[in-house]
Amino acid sequence: MRAFLTLTRRELTSHFVSLNGYAVIAGVQLLLGQSFWTLLDALNGKPFDMPVTEKFFDTGFFWLVLLLVTPMITMRTYALERATGTFETLMTTPISEAQVVLAKFCGALAFFVIAWLPAVAYPFLLQHYAEGMAPVDAGPVAATFLGIALLGGFYMALGCFASSLTRSQIVAAMTTFAIGLGLFLLGYLSQIRPPEPGWQAQLLTHLSMLEHMRDFSRGVVDTRHVFFYLSLTTFFLFLTLRVLESRRWK
């Protein structure tokens, strides 16, 4: 356990020893802040049908930030280690491969959560400055950030897997972005061109991240969505572990 915690701390602090980690957080906050302000500017003084926070997570801004940031965080996890030659050193330390996989994942996820954390303040900032607004309902805010953490966990696991396949950070980032975008578009396409009722429609609804996030942002925590993200996260971590184990056959 101590080795796991040490490795997790190492992963997390590696983001903060250079300017890169801060630049990523600043970038995330800049994009989120600009998007949120644009939405506020568009809705100011006009009646609309859902709380502004719910509306924000229903827009493309949120997904754009999510899809762009994930590869930037995870591309270095294994690819950088392979490129700099520290991978073999790491794998010969007396810790299991599963601990390495979990520690790298937890480190990346912790950084992802830190990068998004300032956004918790948005609803409260809005309430402070806006007139005639209903009090912030803490439940949907908590559910939204649970959703972001689950979604982030899944994308981090996907990114770790992509990074474990290559020694090029660019390839790792592109792979993560491509798979992440593909999964997102699957849900998006089912929104704009809903399929005929049947098992395909049910499957697409189950896979639709837009639908999941819509529920979370309304304050609905559905165990199906939670299970979906946890199971996929576990699956991609398992794949990463198998990829790491495969170096032994060579």
Partner: peptide, 29 residues
């Protein structure tokens, strides 16, 4: 749902969201 923010407050919000929060992260880094 509706809210009203005056132009002055919108400008203040803009600076907080787009400059102060990201800027603080970058400065700290």
């Amino acid at each position: 749902h509706t809210f009203t923010i005056t132009a002055a407050k919108m400008r203040r919000l803009f600076w907080i969201l787009v400059a102060i929060i990201p800027g603080a992260c970058l400065t700290f880094g």
